[in-house]
């Protein structure tokens, strides 16, 4: 469907086009079963940033306040990229891992499901 407008060929700027982010792209990162962080966070990251650097620098800044964070076994973390199961290569860039502008990364930590296993 298309919008009905007062004049023909109505369109406007895509407010969040990747060009507007000064060389970065937006990446959303959420941690399943940890509702203490009620939603995924949004981060402006260089597309060339290695996935390993995201784990080392971005993810702790976002989630390390949770007591489960210190107990994460990073070898066992399961990742979802835009809803699909995903095996990131840590020394490859976001771009080369298929993480595009406004991609959503979800982190699943088996055995760690929030305070007292409550999903919080």
């Amino acid at each position: 469907m298309a919008v009905k407008a007062a004049y023909e060929n109505y369109s406007g700027p895509n407010r969040d086009a990747v060009e507007n982010f000064h060389g970065n792209q937006l990446v959303y990162i959420g941690w399943d079963e940890h509702m203490m962080f009620p939603c995924a966070g949004v981060f402006p990251l260089p597309p060339q940033m290695p996935f390993g650097a995201v784990i080392k620098e971005v993810v702790p800044a976002a989630f390390s306040l949770h007591p489960d964070f210190a107990n994460i076994d990073w070898g066992k973390v399961e990742w979802l990229l835009d809803g699909k199961s995903f095996n990131p290569t840590l020394d490859k860039s976001l771009e080369d891992n298929g993480v595009h502008h406004k991609s959503l990364i979800r982190m699943i930590t088996p055995g760690l499901n929030g305070i007292n296993n409550s999903g919080f």
Binding site: M1, A2, S11, G12, R15, F21, P44
Partner: peptide, 20 residues
């Protein structure tokens, strides 16, 4: 999806912060 031309222009505050 009914009006993407309009809704894609949304001024989302977190994104605006990152746009400077």
């Amino acid at each position: 999806e009914h009006e993407p031309e309009k809704m894609s222009q949304a001024w989302l505050p977190p994104h605006q912060i990152f746009q400077g």
